[in-house]
Computed example of a mutant assay.
Amino acid sequence: MLWLSSPGARAATLPAIWLIATDRRPATLPERSALRRGLARSILANQFNLDPEAVTLDHEPAGRPLIANPHGSGLHLSLATRAGLVAVALSHQPAGVDVEGVELTAEPPLAALHPGERAMLQALPPPARPLAFAQLWSAKEAYVKALGTGFRRAPESFLVRLAGLDLFEVDDPERPGAALAGASRIMKNGGHGTMAAAFIELA
């Protein structure tokens, strides 16, 4: 798996996640969508060695993005935007990516978490909780994107376990068996504060 920071970088292997810091501050859903889709088209054009005009994106009825052109790539796409930071994930398997800001002054919404996640957060010293919550929530959102459900799947219905700053696991009672492993990334970049990104791929 590759983490890339330039829209002009080409991934030699997949999965790959591009985390692109921009100076944009989209304020509405259409603005955020235009920003991430525009960057995704540029990244895919570079990856496929095509002109950007030859790349088009569509979405499934449930909202998950897909590559409409070029046809038949067989690749899965996931997108996220937060505070001008855009994440674009490309994978051979269904996958999800998300980015969340670390809100130092906000109280984490514990009721939206699995009981095991609430216990983990409450066991931490208060200063450590905002970063841990951003990691948890980005992992949870990446997972439901990979499922294709979004948060029609209740966030408290599955458990995310953090394993340091760069790994997490998902235990889902609806997918019995071994826990799924995902990857996290913590970054600081100008104007965006501290951000937590998460990526997971379904086997």
Rank of each mutant, 00 (worst) to 15 (best):
E60T: 13
A9R: 02
M195D: 04
L167P: 00
V160L: 04
M120F: 15
G63T: 12
E141F: 03
L14W: 14
L202T: 06
A134L: 11
T149W: 04
P94Y: 01
N46T: 14
S73K: 07
R41M: 11
E103M: 14
Q93F: 02
L29W: 03
L44W: 07
E103S: 09
V170H: 00
S91A: 15
G8T: 10
M1Y: 06
E156S: 10
A27N: 03
A112F: 05
G101R: 06
L124F: 13
A16G: 10
R10C: 15
G63V: 15
I67M: 02
D58Y: 06
R152L: 08
W3M: 08
L77I: 12
H114G: 01
L131R: 15
L90V: 11
L90S: 14
N69W: 03
A123W: 09
G150D: 01
D98N: 00
A83L: 10
P125I: 15
R36Q: 14
A128S: 15
A87K: 06
Q135H: 07
F199N: 06
V102R: 00
E103C: 05
I67E: 04
T56P: 09
P125E: 15
G182A: 02
S42M: 11
A62Q: 15
L202G: 03
A62V: 13
L165I: 06
A12D: 14
A12P: 06
G101D: 06
L110K: 04
A112E: 09
A87G: 15
I43M: 09
I43L: 12
L14C: 12
T194P: 03
S138G: 01
A68S: 10
A112N: 05
G148Y: 11
L35C: 09
F133V: 10
H114A: 05
L75T: 12
F199C: 13
P26G: 10
M187V: 10
L2D: 07
A146T: 06
E117D: 08
L85V: 14
L136E: 05
G150N: 04
E141V: 09
L124C: 14
E201L: 05
L113A: 10
L39Q: 02
I43T: 13
A40V: 13
A163E: 13
A154S: 14
A40W: 03
H71T: 05
P61K: 14
P30T: 10
V170N: 00
A139P: 01
E141T: 01
D58E: 12
L39W: 08
L66V: 12
Y143D: 03
P127V: 13
D171Q: 11
W18A: 00
L85R: 01
G177H: 08
